[in-house]
Structure formats: structure tokens, C-alpha cells
Design a protein around this nucleic acid. Structure first.
Lengths: 236, 236
DNA sequence: CGCCCAGTTGAGGACACTCAATAGCGGTGG
DNA sequence: CCACCGCTATTGAGTGTCCTCAACTGGGCG
């Protein structure tokens, strides 16, 4: 653990005030004066791929902000199969459920290196009492999660395999303007769109053969957005 | 519109205080004194099947509580197909998204006769400023919606058709202890589990032939929970 | 009585899954 | 440095499921 995060552990007040992602993070929009109310330690954690931040049904009273990286939220089926219900990226909140319930509802697992802020629910409750505005911010997070859940249901769980994969690729490429995207393991991608790893592999291999997907390094690819869009909309 | 609802329109303060579903509704947990802060009209509406409460992308600043009945939230795919992303029942909230955004994110359509309270966002904001506790209640609604969304993704959009339908039936029978459940149109059920109406029809017909589902009136059925559970878990 | 709509059933084919074999890639140890 | 191992991705063959298209049924209602 480096000096900066050591520092942050004991100085949540200071840390969040100057946090690099503050404008997109939970405390965005809080007044300077509000930071005086944060007297509790705000931990910082770093994860490497496949690390779990928390597990399903694990009791907890900490919510998290993802400062950088990508994480998956996983739930399991009776037969042991897993289904990825959401991806989280910079600025997204994890573990909101601990604000209203005793335990976490998913496995939260890192897909890339991740930096995370851990905020005790206690801090939120105290701050919220003074600053209802914080609740606006929280509700925005909740809405973002819900909206994303709807996308996963309509885009990634409906229609033929080619369409689902194409939609997923577009979604993964979305944040970047240059059509570059990070591909994950085939098994994970299968769990995202409700298909087997073989089917996903076949489709991606075919897209590569058709030139809609070009290799650009380790798991990094460049895609043809227009063509993918046509496939995603069922026009091909 | 009957006398009671006419009354309710102008007396939100009185209405919510004595509301029949108050214990499970949005204002559950508010102190008596808090009701004095409701000075705005709280409308009441009734819907019949296929009525729309609101439409996707429609601007709005009203959120709703479903006092009785069942409603569906629908989103549409590029090819015009619809996908039902959630069902709402007694005590559920609709239109939470207007608390943080300008417009609704789904079509909200009645599946049965419905009674609904309409609450202006303005009222929530004013009340929330005085009573942060209201936000706890709101966050509970949000969490319920999100949790339901996860169920739809893992239970109703994953695995073979028989399992999905069995899980849906169990879900619909869930609130009743006597294993009675209300079946909806095959088209709607298809849109819930991501299958065609024909496939759903075939599966339900087969379940009936096997005696796992018995007719008990108009769309009302009685089901064999244990057997359905075995199918849902892939043991049959 | 006949229309209309929803549900059911059938036949055929496309699609995705299963099982199995192969290929590629990075790491480890001799 | 190379041989080997383990893991992931890819590819193939065969099967089963689900979709499409189409016909038929039955109840509700004008």
C-alpha cells in the first residue's frame, strides 16, 4: 500500500475533496462545507482481475465507488451456472443494497485492475441527514443501475446470438470514440449474453474473418461500428 | 370517478394518512406530523387492462404507487418486438426515474384493473428536505426494482424454455399461499421470458396435460409447486 | 349465425447446445 | 533454451430445442 492510499484511509475528508473522480463520483455536488461532516475513515482498495470485492449474501455495511477499472456483478443459478447481471465502470457505485438491507446481492468481481473507495453506510446516513442533496446523488446511481439492468434484459438477453453479441460489443465500445474495445474471456461474455462460450467464440471468430473486428493488442480490438449496428438491429 | 377518489384528489394529506395500503406504500413510516407537509393534490387513477399509465420517453414529473392490480413495464427492440422488463404489484412504485430524470423509461401498461396514486415529484422533494427518512423508503423501492430486474435476468432469461416458464409460474404464484396464480396472455408471457407465444403455449399446454396446472376459472390456475420447482431447477 | 381474436397444434428447418478434438499461448522447470 | 504443462480459444460433428409459417379450434360478441 502506497503513501497516498495510507493517507486516504485516515483522511476521507481530505481525500474526497480532492478526489480525481469527484465530479463523477458519489460526493459530486456536495458543498465544500459538507466535507467537514466526513469524520469516518474512507478506505481505498485495489483489485486485480478475478479478485472479489464482496460475495453474494455476505453481510456488509459498506458501499463502494469504482474509481477506475471494470467489475462484474454475478448471480448464480440453481444448476451452478453463473449469469453476469451488470458491468460497472469508472464512477459507478457498488453495494448500494447495503443502504437498505443487511447483505450484498451479488458477487462483485474485478475484470481488470480496479481502484475502489469504500464508504461506510454510517457516513452516508450521517451526511444524508444534513444534506438531502446526497440522496439525489444516490438515487441517480440507483437509476443508472436500473437503467443498465433494463439494457441487459432487452439488448443482451433477447434475439438471436449474433445480435446479442453485436450489441454487447457496441456496448463495450461505447465509452471510447475511437471504436476500440476491451474483450473479456469468452466464458464471461457468454455469461453476459446468456450463451455458451463456444457460441460466443464462433461468432467473434466469424466477425473477425469478416473484418468487423480487428486485433489491436492484448484483448484490445477495433470494431466497425456501422456494420455491428446493422447486425445488432437485425438487418444482417 | 366515485366520491372517494374525488375526495382524495384534493386531500392528499388526509388520503395518505388513512390510506388502506399505507403500511406498504411510499409514505409508510412517516410520522403523523409529516402529513401536514403534503399540501399538493395527490391524484388517484383507475385503469383497466391495456390502459397505459405513461409511455416511454414521455416527459413527466409524477411518480406513482400501485395500490392494487398488476402492471407491466415494457421496452421495445429496434425490430419492433417488445420485451417486458418487470411486473408491478400492490405497493410497488412506478416512475421513480422522474425523481432524477425528465422522462419515463418504459411503457407502463395495466394487465388487470388497477388503482393508482399519483404523487408529484415536487411533493417528494419538499417532504424529503424535512424528512430524510422518506429517502430510506424511496431507496427501498429502488432496491426492490433492481432486485426484481436481477430475477428477470437470471430466472426468466436464462436456460431452456421449460425452466423459464416454470420459474415464471412459480414467481406469479409466489404471493398466494394456496398455489393459485393468474395467467396472462401468451403473448405477454412470451415477452416476459423471451420466447415466442407458440413455445409458451406448447409448454403450458403440456404442463396442463401432466396435471401440474389445473384450471380454476378465468385465467386462474392452481399449480403443483414442488413439481414446478423441480422443472425450474433443471431436475426434470 | 358468423366474425374475430386468442390459444393450440403440426411440420419443417434454422439455430444454438453438447461433446470432443485441436490449436495457440504463457509460464515453469529441467 | 527448449520441452512440457495447463488453460483458453477455436473448430467440427451431431443432436435437440426453439422458431417460423400455417392450419385449426373454441369462446365472446355483435
Amino acid at each position: 500500500m502506497n503513501l497516498i492510499s495510507l493517507h486516504a484511509i485516515w483522511l476521507g475528508e481530505t481525500q474526497c475533496r480532492y478526489c480525481a473522480v469527484r465530479s463523477s463520483a458519489l460526493f459530486a455536488g456536495l458543498e465544500e462545507s459538507d466535507f467537514r461532516h466526513i469524520h469516518q475513515p474512507i478506505n481505498e482498495r485495489t483489485l486485480v482481475p478475478s479478485d472479489a470485492l464482496y460475495r453474494m449474501n455476505e453481510p456488509g455495511n459498506t458501499l463502494f465507488t469504482l474509481r477506475s477499472g471494470v467489475m462484474k456483478l454475478v448471480q448464480y443459478l440453481p444448476d451452478g451456472n453463473q449469469r453476469i447481471v451488470r458491468l460497472l465502470r469508472d464512477g459507478d457505485a457498488l453495494g448500494l443494497e447495503t443502504l437498505v438491507g443487511p447483505s450484498y446481492q451479488h458477487d462483485a468481481i474485478a475484470l481488470t485492475d480496479c481502484e475502489i473507495c469504500a464508504i461506510p453506510v454510517e457516513v452516508i446516513n450521517r451526511l444524508g441527514r444534513e444534506q438531502p442533496r446526497l440522496y439525489q446523488e444516490l438515487m441517480t446511481r440507483w437509476q443508472r443501475a436500473l437503467s443498465e439492468a433494463d439494457v441487459w434484459l432487452t439488448q443482451f438477453s433477447t434475439g438471436p446470438a449474433r445480435q446479442r453479441v453485436a450489441r454487447l460489443l457496441l456496448h463495450l465500445a461505447c465509452p471510447a470514440q475511437d471504436s476500440h474495445l476491451l474483450l473479456f474471456g469468452r466464458e464471461d461474455m457468454g455469461a453476459m449474453v446468456g450463451l455458451t462460450t463456444e457460441t460466443v467464440s464462433r461468432i467473434i471468430a466469424e466477425l473477425r474473418r469478416q473484418g468487423l473486428l480487428r486485433d489491436r493488442g492484448v484483448n484490445l480490438h477495433e470494431c466497425n461500428r456501422e456494420q455491428l449496428r446493422r447486425i445488432a438491429d437485425g438487418e444482417a
